[in-house]
Simulated assay, not measured.
Amino acid sequence: MAALALVLTACGSDDGGDDTSAGGSGGDNGAAAGELDTSVEGEVAVDGSSTVYPMTTAAAELMTVDGSPIQVSVGEAGTGGGFEVFCTGETDISDASRPIDEEEEVPVCEENGIEYTELLIATDALTVAVHPDLAVDCLTVEELVKLFGPKSKATNWQDINPEFPDQEIVGFIPGTDSGTYDYMAADVVEDESETLRKDFETSEDDNVLVTGVSETEGGVGFFGYTYYEENQDKLKAVAIDGGNGCVEPSAETAQDGSYSPLARPLFIYVNNKSYTDEPAVAEFTDYYIANLADIAAGAGFIPLNDEDYAATQDALAGIGG
């Protein structure tokens, strides 16, 4: 966090509006941060994805470093848990590691008169990790289905692949409120039930999953790339073969599309009324997006390319008509 603070201090949010530089794509997709209005006070309530949590927390803390008195509370109830409170008007912003569900969550927002704007903020490389001593280095998509799918009966790694070690499988996966769970179930396993196997330990706290995998022989789990990167001294990331050979998770492979199908978009959803009626919400959201490239890179995520960043800026500019 301190290193990230130095990055944004160097770029300057009070330097007369010089452009910030994009963090990972090699292009210049930074926005003119402009003058931070340190006279704006108030509170901003955020909840949702544990994957996006470090990025939103970084944005809040960096705005404080730059002199803002705005108080931002950031929860990590999971993407689904975040939408539950967002769609009833209890929060101003919802962190999400998947799009809002059109069948279940959108109707709740509509019932409660919550109009919102989706803002794409970064890309993540969903990372499958195992105990560092486990001799499993690459998994095909078919093997991911055998490992995590709801119909899986695999209890030994050799049930997944006869060439794998004779070792019991012990799984640690996100809970059902997590967008990370939803993404694995719906976009990778692609079972019509959109669920995963129920005999693995679950938690909405990614740190619990990291601890479980790192301390258990035969342990396996999955979470956002940031959590792997922070704990790579005690975990081993598994390469994924999406049909074109084994590819390891990284910023580069997620952005160029080769880390398929586990590269995924990350979002924040902003309550339009909160943005237009509450100066603190508008100030925080504007600051977040203005410094997005540096916040994403510093928090360990893959910054947007120039085209996607421009679309996010346009969406933000369109709030309130």
Score class of each variant (00 low, 15 high):
residue 23 G to P: 06
residue 197 R to Q: 06
residue 121 I to T: 15
residue 225 Y to L: 05
residue 141 V to S: 07
residue 113 G to F: 05
residue 50 S to K: 05
residue 38 T to A: 12
residue 53 Y to Q: 11
residue 202 T to R: 15
residue 273 K to P: 00
residue 51 T to W: 07
residue 113 G to N: 12
residue 140 T to L: 05
residue 182 D to Y: 08
residue 270 V to R: 07
residue 142 E to Q: 14
residue 33 A to K: 11
residue 246 C to K: 10
residue 268 I to Y: 08
residue 127 T to C: 04
residue 118 E to M: 08
residue 277 D to F: 03
residue 257 G to P: 03
residue 298 G to L: 01
residue 19 D to Q: 11
residue 94 S to Y: 03
residue 2 A to L: 10
residue 193 S to A: 14
residue 103 E to S: 12
residue 47 D to P: 04
residue 241 D to H: 06
residue 243 G to K: 09
residue 87 C to P: 07
residue 37 D to W: 02
residue 188 V to I: 12
residue 257 G to V: 00
residue 26 G to T: 10
residue 64 T to V: 13
residue 134 L to G: 00
residue 220 V to C: 03
residue 146 K to R: 13
residue 105 E to D: 14
residue 76 E to A: 14
residue 18 D to Y: 10
residue 106 V to H: 12
residue 223 F to R: 05
residue 124 D to V: 04
residue 90 E to T: 09
residue 184 M to G: 00
residue 246 C to R: 12
residue 45 A to H: 11
residue 292 L to D: 04
residue 213 V to K: 01
residue 245 G to N: 11
residue 321 G to Q: 14
residue 22 A to E: 15
residue 168 E to Y: 00
residue 189 V to S: 04
residue 278 E to Y: 04
residue 23 G to C: 06
residue 86 F to H: 08
residue 280 A to N: 10
residue 115 E to Q: 12
residue 178 S to W: 01
residue 280 A to E: 12
residue 122 A to M: 08
residue 140 T to H: 11
residue 39 S to D: 15
residue 207 N to C: 02
residue 139 L to A: 05
residue 290 A to L: 05
residue 199 D to Y: 03
residue 40 V to C: 07
residue 71 Q to C: 02
residue 10 A to H: 13
residue 83 F to R: 01
residue 156 N to A: 07
residue 298 G to W: 02
residue 302 I to K: 10
residue 277 D to I: 02
residue 301 F to V: 02
residue 127 T to F: 01
residue 288 Y to F: 15
residue 52 V to F: 05
residue 7 V to S: 13
residue 113 G to M: 07
residue 62 L to T: 11
residue 105 E to I: 01
residue 21 S to E: 14
residue 18 D to Q: 14
residue 11 C to H: 13
residue 243 G to M: 04
residue 307 E to N: 11
residue 231 N to P: 09
residue 103 E to C: 02
residue 287 Y to D: 06
residue 38 T to G: 06
residue 311 A to G: 08
residue 167 Q to I: 00
residue 11 C to M: 13
residue 73 S to M: 07
